[in-house]
Write a protein that binds this DNA or RNA. Sequence first.
DNA 1: GTAAAACTACTCGGATATTTTTTGTCCGAGTTTGAGTGG
DNA 2: CCACTCAAACTCGGACAAAAAATATCCGAGTAGTTTTAC
Lengths: 154, 154
Amino acid sequence: MSGGVEWGLHCCVVLGSASDPVPAAKLAEFHDVSPSYLAKQLQLLSRAGLVRAVQGQSGGYLLTRDPADVTVLDVVEAIDGEPGFRCTEVRQRGPLAVPQERCVVPCPIARVMGSADRVWRDSLRAVTIADLTAEVGSTALPGTLDRAREWLRS
Amino acid sequence: MSGGVEWGLHCCVVLGSASDPVPAAKLAEFHDVSPSYLAKQLQLLSRAGLVRAVQGQSGGYLLTRDPADVTVLDVVEAIDGEPGFRCTEVRQRGPLAVPQERCVVPCPIARVMGSADRVWRDSLRAVTIADLTAEVGSTALPGTLDRAREWLRS
DNA sequence: GTAAAACTACTCGGATATTTTTTGTCCGAGTTTGAGTGG
DNA sequence: CCACTCAAACTCGGACAAAAAATATCCGAGTAGTTTTAC
């Protein structure tokens, strides 16, 4: 799993709290991470249509949808993209290869892996950016979100 | 996710069906994969204690437990090892870092990821090598398992 | 004939290259802002 | 006073390296079976 997923999620939480566009450089400073590399992750989010980039002075990134309509799975798929397991059809190889016409049903191993992947995705789909923001607000010290908004403004 | 997981699972299914030790070279030929690299995966399974290596002539690999007592998760963890998501505590960095004494509860993002990882693991833990073997037996042509056993013997 | 010893063939195990993916960095194209200028 | 032009500063986007991980390979250490040999 790509480590940039964590950064992307944190950025989405911040973007969901801010109303004005936030530049990538400010997001990087806020989280104390490499600005150049974070830019790459934000590009991935932009390509996936999760965030919108506003260019020019006082530009930056902006969530395209309501935070309650963006799931954690959306962010993970945008940045990681790849499916977790890919069946290479080993059963069709070797001296006792199963004939192809007998392989209409997926290989049992692929089925188990696919099932696990499905519940994993379902679990991530059940949580939205808004949920994360709410949890941060209730866990952290009161006023933290307001202070963050103020810091982003300057 | 490492591609060797698929090979490892196929090998465990074969080993669960065979009673005599099976050399790594034979497993590689059976699945038509690189013998040298498969050896590495088998080493990982051996270190994890899932299989036992018998040296010398007519030696090979052998399952240490009953196929019904080996779960798919065991194999995946033995070969991949790493946890899917690792929280780097981003919240404790940057200009608005959360103080450490306020971080007794895991970060919400880490919690969501951990929960998804848990259901993923639960799903893989629910299936054993014996289950896979049974499915192969019912899906493939009748007598396939016997032919495989015969081929391994020669 | 039997038991011990040596030999051979075969096994795994770890140390070693090569390729692919991930991580990290840089500079150019494009846009908004604002000031300056002429009407 | 207003509209237009122009320049400057700031933004993202994709092209460009370095590091890490995965993939693939090889040869040496060790063991079981077999043969030989001595008694």
